[in-house]
Design a protein around this nucleic acid. Structure first.
Lengths: 193, 193
DNA sequence: ACCTGAACACCGTTCAAGT
DNA sequence: ACCTGAACACCGTTCAAGT
């Protein structure tokens, strides 16, 4: 248990069945809070912007609480999943995606958001608490640059880009890419429904 | 430790420093094997198809070894990461994406692949070993259909789609979407390099 | 050089006893 | 109804002793 309570260990088990249930409740609270920030985004701004806002909110929440990512993928279609699905799905609907593709398109967005956010959070915690991000990226970049040119021509080439990358910017670029893909595959453009 | 060895527990610690190192080695082996299958895909088939093949290989490998997902996001830019990055990145390069975007575009693909595969694997293991997938999806679908119409209009609408969805097909649809996004954002179309 | 197996620390969980 | 705290099971890790 991360959070230290001022009680004996047994007290918790009066309220929840096990640690998983506790984490699920905590996850739901974190996600609900992250999604609640979104309505601040004006309700008539384009769906793309609202998706970006929701995505960034989740990204930051998971960055602050890395265990949320593991918890969310551990028991997905559970209580918390509909919250996220609904929040993103409404914008997918507003985007004019045909109804038959709502689930698929929304799932892709949610999977990208949670996947990217989770990997980002894991990476953030990977560096020893004291370590400096710049130095860490520098070390990895140097390691990449020294890989065998025959087997790793691509990785060697992007070593510099990886050293200079900004996590949030990369994440938003990913959202933009997926949104562009949605528009390309479902080119209705207009909001009909 | 999942795998039971015919040795005392201490024996392992002569070879590895800790459990993490062991899992990292196992992960590297699983990923290497999954990526090795890909060259079977004819080397002059379009990059999109080769990306799909690599992605599906990883998807299936993670489905078979769910702990690989957790391990991969736990220590990402580590030894195994360059393998995946290289495999996908070469196709991104072949796609004609401008060099300045190689890292971003490849990262998005890899994050989607690992994120989606990880969530899929977690879901697969979520059902009690005996339970039937169809019944499980049915139960979740029913729960969604009974959510408050005011708060969950979207989720209620896609309850049926979620019950009928096929995991691998959804995954491939996601890859297609991301590939479409790449082409839309980087419309060079031709293979120059 | 490599393995054994008892021992330790840690943590999730239980439960009889308290209020 | 809710909390306490000792106890248990489990698992990652260590280490002195063996070959």
């Amino acid at each position: 248990m991360t959070e230290r309570l001022a009680t004996g260990p047994g007290a918790i088990y009066w309220h929840v069945a096990n640690k998983g249930e506790l984490l699920a409740a905590a996850t739901d609270a974190v996600v609900a809070a992250a999604l609640a920030v979104e309505p601040a985004e004006s309700p008539d701004s384009p769906p793309q912007d609202r998706i970006r806002a929701v995505a960034l909110g989740l990204f930051d929440a998971i960055d602050e609480h890395p265990w949320v990512a593991a918890q969310l993928s551990a028991s997905s279609w559970q209580a918390t999943a509909p919250r996220i699905l609904e929040s993103i799905g409404r914008q997918v609907r507003a985007l004019g995606v045909p109804e038959g593709s709502w689930f698929t398109v929304t799932s892709v967005l949610v999977q990208y958001i949670l996947g990217a956010a989770g990997q980002n959070a894991a990476n953030a915690r990977a560096l020893a608490p004291g370590a400096d991000r710049g130095e860490y990226l520098g070390a990895v970049s140097r390691a990449w640059a020294e890989l065998d040119p025959d087997d790793y021509s691509f990785t060697r080439t992007v070593a510099d880009q990886m050293r200079e990358h900004d996590d949030r910017a990369e994440f938003l670029a990913g959202i933009t890419l997926v949104l562009a893909g949605i528009t390309a595959v479902h080119p209705t453009g207009r909001i009909d429904s």
